[in-house]
Computed example of a mutant assay.
Amino acid sequence: MFGWHVPAPDQAMLISGGKSRGEAGLPFRIVTGHGAFVVPVMRRVTYLTLSLMESVIEEACVTQQGIGLAVKGVIAFKVGSDQASIAAAAQRFLADQDRMSVLTGQIFAGHLRSIVGSMTVEDIIRERQKLAEQVLEASKLEMANLGLVVDSLQIQSIDDRGSGYINSLAAPHQAAIQQAAKIAQAQADQAAAEAQQASAQKQSEFARATAVKQAEYQSEIDQAQATAQQSGPLAEAKAQQAVLEEQAKVAAKNAELREAELVAEVVKPAQAEAERIRLLAQADADRTKLSAQASAAEGRIALDQAIIAQLPQMMQAAADGLANANLTILNGTDGLNDAVAQLAAQGSTILQTVMQGLAAHHDVGQQGGAGDRTDPPALGPGPDDDAAR
């Protein structure tokens, strides 16, 4: 757009001309980070770089000991980002911005000579960073007045300009280093020799151990082979013994099975038959006993009937005896009645005695069986009854 200007990110745009003034009464206006409209012809636009720049210095310096040194360093710097730094740098370097590097190098060279003159070579060599920090600190105020900011200062090299002083300083260290290097080399060689010796010894020991192990292995192999050769018949005998044991187990098992078969086929049927015979015999015996008891009962009934049938005869015999007896009755009818009563009582007693004897004879007959039964004797008056009477 005509009249519209935009500065680059690493630039500061300066607008001058007209009656307008910048901040802090500057004769120009500073624009960074955005664009601005500038009236053509009446206003002028210029740009100041804000990018990083460097300045290389190589300065001949003399140390506190009077020893000349050539010190080389690199300075990294730029224009400050604030309005004051931009204004200060613009007023000094806007027309010739390359002059910032030259002037910065001169400023640092002067402070470098001054600071190196207050130090010894040994301090400079050992504390190079300290030297850089002191130079930066001494240059800070002047660089700020110029609107410049130093990012870093690096001392790249220090040379004694051929005097050999630095080499002389380094000689003891170099000698010590060389000596240490030789000692280290000797130690390394010794360690290598010892390592080789140890390696050879280990190889020897390994070979010896290997031979021993091989001999042991061969001995074990020979022993195993001998054992295998000896164990052949033994293994065969054990195998045969195992077969025999298995056969014995099979035979025992077969015997058990045969015994079970015999029990099932012979013993059990025999026991069943014996039990059947015993039951039949018991039934027959019970039947015989019952028959005997029935016969005995029939005999008793017959006996009782025979006794009952003979009672009239017995009473008649008793009456006949009384009729033929020579009895004297003193009390008349009462005495006769008493005699008859006594005779009846005697007959009853005789009958009870006969019945008891028959009952006892019947019990004996039951115990002895039907074949042992004895017929009861016939009852009646005996040949001695008259004598008794």
Rank of each mutant, 00 (worst) to 15 (best):
D151V: 04
V135G: 04
I115D: 00
D123L: 05
M143H: 14
V149T: 15
L153E: 12
V149F: 08
I124M: 00
Q134K: 04
N145K: 10
L141D: 12
L136F: 01
S118L: 07
V135R: 03
V150Q: 11
G147M: 09
L148D: 09
T120Q: 09
M119D: 05
M119G: 08
E137H: 03
S114M: 13
Q156I: 14
E137F: 04
L141G: 10
I155M: 08
E142N: 14
R113V: 09
S157D: 08
S114Q: 11
A132E: 09
A144V: 01
S152Q: 11
A132L: 06
D151F: 06
V150E: 15
E127K: 15
E127G: 10
Q129R: 11
S118T: 06
D151R: 14
I158Q: 08
D151L: 11
L136E: 01
R126D: 12
M143F: 10
I155H: 07
T120N: 01
L131G: 03
A144Q: 10
L136I: 01
D151G: 08
S114H: 08
V135Y: 01
V116G: 02
E137R: 10
I125Y: 05
K130R: 09
V149M: 12
R113Q: 05
I158N: 02
Q154L: 14
Q129F: 05
L148Q: 09
A138L: 05
L153H: 05
L131D: 02
V121E: 04
R113C: 09
M143Y: 08
S114W: 05
E137I: 10
E133K: 00
D123C: 05
S118Y: 05
I158A: 07
E127Q: 14
G117F: 04
I155F: 04
V135S: 01
V150L: 10
E137P: 03
L153A: 04
K140L: 10
Q134V: 07
Q156T: 14
V149C: 08
S118W: 05
R128P: 09
A132P: 03
K140I: 03
K140Q: 09
S139M: 02
L153K: 03
M119Q: 11
